[in-house]
Design a protein around this nucleic acid. Sequence first.
DNA 1: GCAAAAGTGTTTATGTTACACCCATGT
DNA 2: ACATGGGTGTAACATAAACACTTTTGC
Lengths: 228, 228
Amino acid sequence: MTYTYEYPRPALTVDCVVFGFDGSGLQVLLIRRGVEPFAGSWALPGGFVQMEENLETAARRELEEETGLKGVFLEQLCTFGDPGRDPRGRVVSVAFFALVQPDQHPARGDTDASDAKWFEAGKLPPLAFDHASILGAALERLRGKIRYQPVGFELLPKRFTLAQLQTLYEAILDRPLDKRNFRKKLLSFDFLVPLDDYSGGAHRPARLHRFDRRKYEALARKGFLFEL
Amino acid sequence: MTYTYEYPRPALTVDCVVFGFDGSGLQVLLIRRGVEPFAGSWALPGGFVQMEENLETAARRELEEETGLKGVFLEQLCTFGDPGRDPRGRVVSVAFFALVQPDQHPARGDTDASDAKWFEAGKLPPLAFDHASILGAALERLRGKIRYQPVGFELLPKRFTLAQLQTLYEAILDRPLDKRNFRKKLLSFDFLVPLDDYSGGAHRPARLHRFDRRKYEALARKGFLFEL
DNA sequence: GCAAAAGTGTTTATGTTACACCCATGT
DNA sequence: ACATGGGTGTAACATAAACACTTTTGC
């Protein structure tokens, strides 16, 4: 142990920006804080990092404890450490962003007694701490990422229609896409497998597809990039 | 102050991956460690975050203390926090990547008495801690970023020739580019300003250019993306 | 005058955009 | 039968890729 270690240390937390998709709009999962500071405010799920767990493990643990979600797509986003971002003292937070498939949603809305709730990404309540800027960074990252990495599928059920996929892209990129061009392009990379099954619904049934990650990765290794 | 704050905390450091360009190859600035652990090994410049400074400030302070560099391009990269990455105990490190213009290089090589030295990015010595993986992440980020953001100019002198720019791109992307197509494309975005001055040299002089950040930002605001 | 790097256009191939109608189902 | 969303192809346009010779300088 060197002298350096006797210096005071910032506290270290993780926070997760959890995105979902309800079929029409992008959603974000927030929890209502029970304790001060910001008691009663909405905030990103997260909490303190323990001494023997790595950062991603901490994020997954907090996510499960606070929202019940497990096994989701999770990726490190950025670290927020301005002095003053937490009124209690110096707290540095490693932010993650998570994508959850609707199958795994804790019952669309609140998970029984917990205080987690899904919000429309466009209509968020005021957030505790600097969570609004963390969320802004996550949104920007998601928008950038969806254009050249296959992360959209993490927000859809395993079997989905091309119309669902297009609606998702339109919601995230916030602009309309041409139906024929969208289908043409996505099917041209052949990592979307058409299934022999159709979605039910009030009108003409739509063919279901699934994302074939093995095929995607084989392509990706060959220096392939898909852009939209 | 709540009970939470009495938990043990990881130590928090910043580390900087500093890239340079010597006209032919990509370079990385390393410092030789004087103290254990890894005394005598090469490592990324960096050190402990102080309680009242934000993360970027800490990175800039350490960079200046250890290498003399100031005023460089600096961007947060990723945070590395696996338990065990530092033999002394739990140390979480926020990594940054920096780009320095050759003008600012501390005298191409060692800065007087300090133990900083530039290495070819392809021929690095073994590094302390998990710095090799931090460096790998930085390289990957640089390669991705240079294709759609004007970061190349941060590695060249303020006035440069198109040939220098092309060599830089070729070094980072690690593939040859067509001279005519490269010039055509970069000049078509008109953020490169031709100057009335020429590079000296053993052969035909080359026109010097500078990067006009104002023009670039005006374009960028109009939803423009340059890709290479 | 020769070696070395700078500079310059055109053609071809590829990818992107724009666009309108018929189909299958539930009500 | 009608309302609703599913599904399909082609032509115009724009961008990317391939490619070779002349110019200017220092030695």
